[in-house]
């Protein structure tokens, strides 16, 4: 998939618009909640690895809930 930075990327991450080729028939899922991300990914670097979310709310949920759970 190719992507391009969106205009309104926040400080901690950036929006990447999906432009799938015609043979790419599958949409991808959010790294936090598992929802479909139909058009724009919210890409954030967390602890050195790139995370792709459906939006900024999932980044917060990831930081406030998933990371502490993984740490347990």
């Amino acid at each position: 998939m190719s992507g391009a930075a969106g205009p309104d990327g926040g400080a901690g991450g950036r929006w990447v618009e999906l432009k799938p080729a015609v043979w790419e028939t599958v949409v991808r899922a959010c790294d936090c909640c598992g929802q479909v991300v139909p058009k724009r990914l919210w890409v954030v670097d967390i602890a050195g690895s790139e995370r792709r979310f459906c939006g900024t709310e999932c980044e917060s949920l990831y930081r406030s809930y998933v990371l502490p759970r993984l740490a347990r």
Partner: peptide
């Protein structure tokens, strides 16, 4: 209500 359904699990099937 926030839902977390890990992709690739039996609660979030992937292609």
């Amino acid at each position: 209500i926030r839902i977390i359904a890990p992709p690739g699990s039996a609660v979030n099937v992937q292609y």
